[in-house]
């Protein structure tokens, strides 16, 4: 091996293509997260309401998305649903939709958990001063729940970003898919290129996910400091 495999990254437009793939990843994860987190908050609030039917339905929704592996979910959305319902969205939008619904299900449980762990006397005090349900959530429960749910939410965000790596199943040209193209096209010339391409992808994911993890950790620390003086 006369030359090191790292050169595979600098051949032609390889690096630019990898960044293009990363952009697709970020775009899909970004849209899915914005939609998913917003919907998840609404669903999470609804799940703390006393209505039993409502809670059951939302619970089923959560369990469906939590139990189904993401790969199966994507397959269902991309190949099976269009055949049954005649909905035919491009792969990228399908991916955003599937990921948004999945995120919202997971988020609803985080929000629900945070809302019910706000101390009971807070809720009762709110009701005692005559707040209606909207005001109770707006001024008492949600502000206190936010700090409780933030670390878990950031955790979810990093998990969603990482899971976009299964998108190649439905022909989305994400960073992993582009990486495989580069590896296969250069396998003969740079047999050790695999290591460098996946190494580069590792660095890319790390650069996105690590700041989020760090932020989550900091928030958690702050919260503990505030809670325990």
């Amino acid at each position: 091996m006369a030359h090191s495999g790292i050169n595979v990254l600098f051949e032609g437009r390889n690096l630019i293509r990898l960044f293009g793939g990363l952009w697709t990843t970020v775009e899909i994860a970004g849209v899915a997260l914005i939609l998913g987190l917003l919907l998840g908050i609404v669903l999470g609030v609804l799940r703390t309401f006393p209505n039993r039917l409502l809670r059951l339905v939302l619970r089923l929704y959560l369990e469906f998305f939590r139990i189904t592996p993401t790969v199966v979910l994507l397959f269902l959305f991309y190949y099976i649903l269009p055949r049954q319902l005649g909905v035919n969205l491009p792969a990228n939008q399908m991916a955003m939709l599937a990921f948004a619904l999945w995120t919202s299900a997971e988020m609803s449980d985080i929000v629900r958990g945070a809302l019910i762990s706000v101390p009971k006397h807070q809720r009762e005090s709110g009701m005692a001063i005559g707040l209606n349900r909207w005001q109770l959530y707006r001024y008492v429960l949600i502000p206190q729940a936010v700090s409780l749910e933030l670390p878990a939410t950031v955790n979810l965000v990093t998990r969603v970003i990482k899971t976009t790596s299964v998108l190649m199943l439905i022909s989305v040209m994400d960073v992993i898919n582009v990486g495989q193209q580069v590896v296969e096209a250069n396998n003969q010339k740079f047999p050790t290129g695999v290591f460098w391409v996946y190494g580069m992808i590792f660095v890319m994911y790390f650069a996105i996910d690590y700041p989020l993890s760090w932020w989550a950790k900091r928030l958690d620390k702050k919260r503990l400091e505030r809670a325990n003086g």
Binding site: L54, V57, L58, L60, Y61, F64, L76, I80
Partner: peptide, 19 residues
């Protein structure tokens, strides 16, 4: 909520029929 619930359960049923 009811509307949403119905939509969600419909989606569940439909996906069940898929195979």
């Amino acid at each position: 909520a009811l509307f949403f619930g119905i939509t969600a359960s419909l989606a569940l049923v439909l996906s069940g029929c898929g195979s």
